[in-house]
Nucleic acid binder design. Sequence first.
DNA 1: TATACTACTTACCTTAAGGATAGTGGTTTC
DNA 2: GAAACCACTATCCTTAAGGTAAGTAGTATA
Lengths: 118, 118
Amino acid sequence: MEELTKEQCTKSLLPIRDALDVINGKWKLHIIGSLLHGNRRFKDLQRDISGITAKMLSQELKSLELNGLVSRTVYDSAPVIVEYMLTPYGKTLQKLMDELRLWGTEHRKRMISPAAVK
Amino acid sequence: MEELTKEQCTKSLLPIRDALDVINGKWKLHIIGSLLHGNRRFKDLQRDISGITAKMLSQELKSLELNGLVSRTVYDSAPVIVEYMLTPYGKTLQKLMDELRLWGTEHRKRMISPAAVK
DNA sequence: TATACTACTTACCTTAAGGATAGTGGTTTC
DNA sequence: GAAACCACTATCCTTAAGGTAAGTAGTATA
């Protein structure tokens, strides 16, 4: 097994940071969670995610779109309909989210009754 | 496959949030990364992690200790020596970090040359 | 006795994330 | 023609994360 230099170690944190940045913020996981259940329009998302403002929803959707996780389709109807959906790439996040959920669930148990897992 | 209600869906995000909170912040991953290479004293960590201040290092170490990821040992020598190490539990983070690194590496490729992966 | 080292702590300041509220532009319904 | 619906955008404000700089307490070395 090779030892990593300090620089290599710091560098190896960059992709982790990238991954975290993509899902960071108060609302992104909520949006992804909602979209995992199917396509949604703007108002649908706002209804699904209690507490989110139009400003934040719009902002976070743009960020998710920029990162290729969410696609935005405008239907030329009246009134105009805008539909958001997870891209196939966006769906690859689910595995990561499952891992995080698993670790987080164990952690929560451990924090509630530390004696039981010491 | 069962459909989740809105409440169940929101609830399932909680452990994910827990996991993310544990490693969130600008410095925690750097500290964990350094400790993955062996035990470290306060000054060692400060030297390892370029840019971190004593205040932030102290603050983040406390948070990691509270979460059971890092242990703090004071040796009754003169001058006093304080050693930090990852607990076995802290080491379980490595798997998660590897998954995040994997996804993040792919994401970085995709962001640099989107055409190649379209 | 002065300087330096270790392991921090304290007080203050800056910046960025997010919240509150209101407004825009188009369309449709009453 | 007034009110309502959709999909946002703009402006201002609060809060929290993190940075700066200095200080503390104990020991040890010159």
